[in-house]
């Protein structure tokens, strides 16, 4: 018997982000996105920087994930992320500002230096946040239409 749903749990060191019963999940693995449906084979993977999407009934919700691990079991998925926010919580203006700031700072450092790496990662994080927020916005707009 395959399970019909997945218990999704997302935790970061600083908080318990989410615990919900969902139907499908898309996980941002280090090597690429992977889709998880109920009854998935057990799997452990490292996470990259990206957007985790999950579906409950008709709604799809988004979370940002910044590095960590995920353990997948047939009826349970545990995501141990370094940082994670729900798309609704993201302050897009702040992320834009962070991206601009990092982009300007990036130009001042030589490629490959530690500062350059740090700024590049900051840009990546900001872009993921903006993308997650805009996807969540689009999803909301679609569900409102008849």
């Amino acid at each position: 018997m395959l399970p019909e749903s997945i218990e999704l749990q997302v935790v970061t060191p600083e908080r318990h982000v989410l615990e919900e019963t969902v139907l499908a999940i898309e996980i941002p693995g280090k090597e690429g996105y992977l889709g998880v449906l109920p009854g998935h084979a057990p799997l452990i993977t490292e996470l990259g920087v990206g957007i985790l999407a999950y579906r409950t009934g008709s709604a799809t919700r988004y979370l940002t994930i910044i590095e960590g691990y995920a353990e997948v079991l047939p009826d349970r998925v545990i995501v141990l992320a370094e940082i994670s926010e729900k798309a609704e919580e993201i302050d897009v203006d702040r992320s834009r500002a962070a991206q601009d700031r990092a982009q300007r700072a990036l130009a001042q450092h030589g490629p490959g230096t530690a500062e350059w790496q740090a700024e590049r990662q900051a840009i990546e994080r900001a872009m993921v946040r903006i993308a997650a927020a805009s996807q969540a916005g689009m999803a909301r707009a679609q569900t409102k239409e008849p």
């Binding site: 693995g29 280090k30 090597e31 992977l34 084979a41 057990p42 799997l43 993977t45 490292e46």
Partner: peptide
């Protein structure tokens, strides 16, 4: 488990 990366690395 299945592993996306070598388990030793994880």
């Amino acid at each position: 488990y299945l592993y996306e990366e070598p388990i030793g690395e994880i």
